[in-house]
Nucleic acid binder design. Structure first.
Length: 445
RNA sequence: GUGGUUGUAGCUCAGUUGGUUAGAGCGCCGGAUUGUGGUUCCGGAGGUCGCCGGUUCAAGCCCGGUCUACCACCCCA
């Protein structure tokens, strides 16, 4: 049979893994620096834990796991209860909420956790869109303070500064969006109105209005939303107009106040530009306050590389009320694509061998084994070529693996108790020296 | 989930209106060079033309299905 892997999944080769680990390590270090603690949850959750949390569209994309054995036989006879009982996790936020409720008595609130694990979606794959991909989440739950929003924005900035990537952090507040629906006269149509205006920059004003009409939003309400399309400029400029327009809505005023606080408190950022975007909506049903989205300001990838937002009652469905939380999620796979395209990965990523001992035969190899130990104890990544093949082949091996130094220990070196050190790429035959000198030289790099 | 494009050597791609034994470049392996790779020269291996079926005297080429990657919706990291 022909070897292959499921649609939308990928293997990650050594070169790719070094780069992926660089991203994960960078993000993880920043998470820890901001006081978040690690958490892992199972790949599978009960199906009912996940269904109904991501909206109608989201439910369709959940990867369901078939019942097994006798359970499956029963399900085939009585179809009323469905064929699946478990499901692969769709994101890290809902499993986190489940965890918080389940372990509420053991946790210290506000609880700050980070989680770096794969998630699965039964989506149709495209570029930058996979069925299995990694999310790197940080959430704080058990506090309504806007300081958390501020901290998370600064965390975005910190990570992308370390990765050397310029980004735009877009922010909006669901309360403002609710206010817009309220003022338009059809508050019950929030979701339809919001998902339509989310597409504004993509399809334009006319199509947005058309979509709202199709969803049953009245012409009068659509007219009421018109001021939204006129908004432009900085946050402070837009705020003034929004305050006037949305004056009748108490909830919108609260949203605007929260945004003002956040903008003010965030202060100067290094790599990110914080931008208010009144058309930013995001699909997930559970967001209630601030919502975030990050896009790369460099490269050609137009889709978002991070998302996030505040959810007031995610734990409610699991039986724990009044637990507000806010979180963000880094899309590692998309960040990878952007860094690769823009050439932002460091040229040398640790983990690869620094020194290769060429193999000249059994006696020499056994001697090299001792030298290897010394070199490794000094903290230098080194290896011995396993076969006594001819030198050109061993050199080619070093070149392909990107090993910068080759140690040559043949008959004459063995007798003199030295090692010939050759730098790859250098146009010479190398220099003979004692092993101690070799170690000292390599440690300088 | 809807509609569309694609698939030929490890990689990038040629392949005429359907016509004998499917090609090139790069890479790989061997030799020139048994202690010095990256240059050069010489030689070699490697293909069920994505898979299954159909039309035809004859299919890499036409038709149907299927899988994959990709594109547009939908949605999203």
């Amino acid at each position: 049979m022909k070897p292959s892997i499921p649609k939308g999944t990928r293997d990650f080769g050594p070169q790719e893994m070094l780069r992926r680990k660089y991203i994960f390590n960078t993000i993880e270090k920043v998470f820890q620096k901001y006081g978040y603690l690690p958490l892992e949850t199972p790949a599978m959750e009960h199906l009912e834990t996940l269904t109904g949390k991501y909206g109608e569209e989201g439910d369709r994309l959940i990867f369901k796991v078939l019942k097994r054995g006798a359970e499956l036989e029963r399900a085939l006879e009585d179809r009323s209860k469905g064929f699946a009982d478990e499901a692969l996790r769709y994101d890290l936020t809902v499993p986190f909420a489940r965890y918080v409720v389940q372990h509420q008595n053991d946790l210290v609130f506000p609880f700050k956790r980070y989680q770096i694990q794969p998630v699965w979606r039964a989506d149709r794959p495209q570029k930058g869109r996979y069925r299995e991909f990694y999310q790197c989440d940080a959430d704080v739950i058990g506090s309504t303070s806007l300081l958390s929003e501020v901290e998370l924005i600064q965390l975005f900035d910190d990570v992308f500064t370390q990765l050397g990537l310029k980004v735009v952090v877009k922010i909006n507040d669901r309360k403002v969006l609710s206010g817009i629906a309220e003022v338009s006269g059809q508050p019950e149509k929030v979701v339809d109105i919001v998902t339509a205006i989310d597409k504004l920059d993509k399809i334009g004003r006319e199509k947005v209005e058309e979509e709202m009409r199709e969803k049953g939003v009245s012409d009068q309400a659509i007219q009421g939303i018109a001021p939204l399309f006129e908004l432009k400029g900085t946050w402070n400029e837009q705020r003034v107009k929004l305050e006037q327009w949305l004056a009748p809505s108490a909830i919108a005023q609260q949203g605007l106040k929260d945004l003002s606080f956040t903008f003010e408190a965030v202060g100067q950022l290094k790599s990110a530009v914080l931008e208010f975007d009144p058309t930013l909506a995001r699909g997930l049903d559970y967001y209630t306050g601030a919502i975030f989205e990050v896009k790369a300001a460099e490269g050609s990838l137009q889709s978002s590389i991070c998302g996030g937002g505040r959810y007031d009652d995610l734990t409610g469905v699991f039986g724990l009320k009044g637990m507000s939380g806010v979180g963000i999620s880094f899309g590692a796979d998309r960040i990878y694509d952007v860094l690769l395209e823009t050439g932002k990965f460091p040229a040398e990523l640790g983990g690869s061998t620094q020194l290769l001992f060429a193999n000249f035969g059994e006696a020499e190899a056994l001697h090299c084994l001792k030298l290897l130990r010394q070199v490794r104890e000094a903290g230098i990544a080194a290896e011995l070529y396993p076969d006594a093949t001819k030198l050109p082949k061993q050199f080619t091996y070093a070149e392909k693996k990107g090993i910068p130094y080759v140690a040559i220990v043949g008959e004459s070196e063995l007798q003199q108790g030295v090692v010939t050190l050759k730098r790859m790429g250098a146009n010479d035959k190398g220099t003979a020296m004692p092993i101690e000198a070799l170690i000292a030289q390599l440690l300088q790099h």
